[in-house]
């Protein structure tokens, strides 16, 4: 369970997040939508405790992570898997080594066990046969899938996805959506997905929350969001702009 209370965060004196409140139940998938630069990725970083908020509290399984020090947080982060927007693969390692990293570093798994699980994870994201390549030798979409395999290989109870389908073709994007659903249904993973992709949002979400001007403006099931009377929400989900461009 994830609970965020009155979260404020920003840069150089300007708050991007101005009092975010949200709650994600166990095995639930919350999709956060909102305009670029609105602080969605920052919100994920704060939930993963990769940054400290200026104000507010973040409860992961009823424990407030905000006051905890880095050394205390380090082992706790095993609960969370993160798919970064640009995958953030270690460029000195191969795809295989990247995916194996969470298992290898813990020192608890045999080489045989690691090999089996890495091959399974690579198959899950359609990357079989690419394990020997370096991140620089594969496409952006493949890097993202490798990042996803790395995020989920140690079976975290919470997964945070930052733009999981951005830059992927519709078929691969749909396979990623199916994977998010599968993780939620079969392994009861609690998920927060940040995306602009409304097709993906409607498919994977149990609830959708719209982040607007630093707060969750509206939250509800995909059907509720689609039928929202709020003009800001409607404009976003329909992709309408008021700005006219003369050509």
């Amino acid at each position: 369970m994830i609970q965020v209370e009155d979260l404020h965060h920003g840069f150089k004196g300007t708050d991007i997040l101005r009092g975010v409140n949200l709650r994600v139940e166990s095995a639930e998938t919350l999709v956060i939508i909102g305009r670029s630069g609105g602080g969605k990725s920052q919100l994920l970083r704060l939930i993963a405790s990769l940054a400290k908020p200026r104000r507010g509290r973040i409860f992961i399984d009823r424990q407030d992570w905000v006051p905890l020090e880095e050394r205390t947080l380090t082992p706790l982060r095993k609960k969370i898997g993160i798919l970064f927007q640009n995958a953030a693969l270690f460029d000195s390692m191969t795809v295989y080594e990247n995916v194996a990293f969470p298992l290898a570093i813990s020192g608890r798994n045999s080489k045989r066990d690691i090999r089996g699980r890495v091959e399974e994870a690579l198959k899950l994201v359609s990357l079989e046969g690419h394990g020997h390549k370096k991140p620089g030798e594969i496409s952006g979409g493949m890097r993202k899938r490798a990042g996803l395999a790395r995020a989920i290989i140690d079976r975290p109870s919470i997964v945070l996805y930052d733009e999981p389908t951005a830059g992927l073709d519709p078929v691969i994007a749909d396979s990623i959506n199916n994977l998010i659903l599968k993780l939620s249904e079969q392994f009861h993973v609690t998920s927060i997905v940040v995306t602009h992709d409304m097709v993906s949002a409607y498919k994977v979400a149990d609830r959708i929350g719209m982040l607007y001007e630093g707060k969750i403006l509206e939250s509800g099931t995909p059907a509720e969001i689609q039928n929202s009377q709020n003009p800001v929400v409607q404009k976003f989900i329909q992709g309408r702009s008021d700005v006219l461009v003369d050509i």
Binding site: F84, L89, F90, R150
Partner: peptide
């Protein structure tokens, strides 16, 4: 973000 990825991987 590789340093953050490291932190995220505990």
């Amino acid at each position: 973000e590789q340093v953050d990825a490291l932190r995220a991987l505990a």
